[in-house]
Design a protein around this nucleic acid. Structure first.
Length: 192
DNA sequence: GGCACGATTGCT
DNA sequence: GCAATCGTGCCT
């Protein structure tokens, strides 16, 4: 049965950078085989195509990136390096190809494997290409507010692994929970 | 049809 | 520092 805490379409329609920050501390939920796998989102990155050259949508609409151009509140999942999947939340109104990459989770329940890093996050949550295009406002994959939300100290930095994007690589569009040990990368902490 | 490469990770 | 591994985008 669906959760009453599940976030609605309007949540995903807000400004993408605001959304990327707002997602920190919320719960990502995937129901697989009747069991809920839940992780607290502790790291995100905003991709603001088509201008942002680091965004997949910067090359225009293609079969792969079509979901990014669709309505907000859907999952954009792609395969990277031939072996890892990455989960993004589509934001921006229809036609505006923005998305927020979920990079790390702190285990809450139903999770056995590591969840630090976008590839490991998907593997632990059981998310692959089949989840591409899923509507997060209805179905087996969604985001909800924790029953007892706690204050979060937000850290901010440049995005990981996009050095090829020139000027765009310097934008501080990565957000993370400064107090979470699950945040990925070696430059995990520091900064505001 | 061919080819270079990536929003990664873990091992050397 | 670099291999693993394959879909995608772009060129021929």
């Amino acid at each position: 049965m669906a959760s009453i805490l599940r976030l609605p379409r309007d949540f995903y329609r807000q400004d993408t950078l605001t959304l990327a920050r707002a997602l920190i501390g919320l719960h990502l939920v995937h129901r697989v085989g009747g069991v809920r796998r839940i992780g607290r989102i502790v790291e995100t990155e905003a991709y603001l195509g088509p201008d942002d050259r680091a965004a997949h949508s910067s090359r225009g609409r293609t079969a792969r990136t079509a979901v990014m151009f669709g309505p907000p509140g859907h999952a954009y999942v792609y395969l990277i390096y031939g072996m890892w999947h990455c989960l993004n939340v589509v934001s921006g109104d229809e036609g505006v190809p923005h998305a927020v990459l979920l990079r790390a989770l702190a285990p809450v329940s139903g999770l056995a494997d590591r969840t630090s890093g976008p590839g490991l996050l998907c593997r632990a949550m059981g998310i692959d290409r089949r989840a591409n295009g899923l509507d997060l406002t209805g179905g087996t994959l969604w985001i909800e507010r924790p029953h007892a939300p706690q204050p979060v100290r937000i850290g901010r930095s440049t995005r990981i692994g996009i050095d090829y994007a020139g000027e765009w690589a310097r934008r501080p569009w990565r957000f993370f929970d400064r107090d979470s040990p699950e945040v990925s990368g070696r430059r995990a902490r520091g900064k505001t």
